[in-house]
């Protein structure tokens, strides 16, 4: 049953991914991309990574694509629909995709943990808890979930982000802040408003 769903959602993801570049209407392309994201989110969920899957939907399908759609809707899409196919670009794109697939295949064939079947590696919360305690890691909420035999994926991601990758996270945060400030500075209007006439 799960493998059927895997192929279904992979097909959704890849099919709509192809439609993104194949369709001439930008709105259709944007929606195909959103569908592709949903397929990807479903794949994450099937791997037990609920948090990543939901964030995929929340951030990409729910916010980023809506903004894309918002911008596209303001364009004149008729001009885009009339444009002819650029043959060298299409061929170049296909060649790039083939090279990338080849590269991915060679890299993945050397990736040993990928050869294990996921259903042969069951979740072992009790063992994980013991290992964590041995390493001196104690977070009450994570311990509670592990003791109850659940996978606290959200909390583990949070822990990793804020301990192991804390510095990187801060850097990314500053980068985003700089970008936000930059956008505001660029898009700020020149202050030419006229002072209102005071009442006589």
């Amino acid at each position: 049953m799960p493998s059927v769903l895997f192929y279904l959602f992979s097909a959704i993801m890849l099919g709509f991914g192809i439609l993104v570049v194949a369709l001439r209407n930008p709105v259709s392309s944007a929606l195909s991309l959103a569908m592709s994201f949903l397929g990807l989110a479903a794949l994450f969920v099937s791997l037990g990574a609920f948090f990543i899957g939901i964030i995929q939907v929340l951030v990409y399908a729910g916010a980023v694509m809506v903004l894309f759609l918002f911008i596209i809707m303001l364009f004149d899409i008729k001009a885009e629909e009339r444009r002819k196919l650029n043959l060298p670009a299409v061929i170049g794109g296909i060649v790039l995709v083939l090279i990338f697939t080849l590269q991915l295949a060679t890299v993945l064939s050397d990736f040993q943990p990928g050869k294990r079947q996921i259903n042969t590696v069951p979740l072992d919360p009790a063992n994980a808890l013991a290992t964590r305690h041995a390493n001196g890691l104690t977070v009450p909420t994570i311990d509670k979930d592990l003791a109850a035999g659940e996978l606290p994926d959200v909390k583990l991601i949070g822990e990793t982000l804020f301990t192991k990758y804390n510095f990187h996270l801060q850097i990314v945060g500053v980068l985003l802040l700089v970008a936000t400030v930059g956008v505001i500075v660029i898009s700020r209007r020149e202050d030419k408003t006229v002072e209102p006439v005071p009442a006589k």
Binding site: L31, F50, L58, L69
Partner: peptide, 24 residues
């Protein structure tokens, strides 16, 4: 689900597609 509120936010954020598409 172990991510209840996030699920609600994620799915309800998809509701905007209906409105945007209706408008467009």
């Amino acid at each position: 689900l172990s991510i209840g509120p996030l699920f609600v936010f994620a799915i309800s954020s998809l509701g905007v597609y209906g409105i945007v598409l209706a408008g467009w």
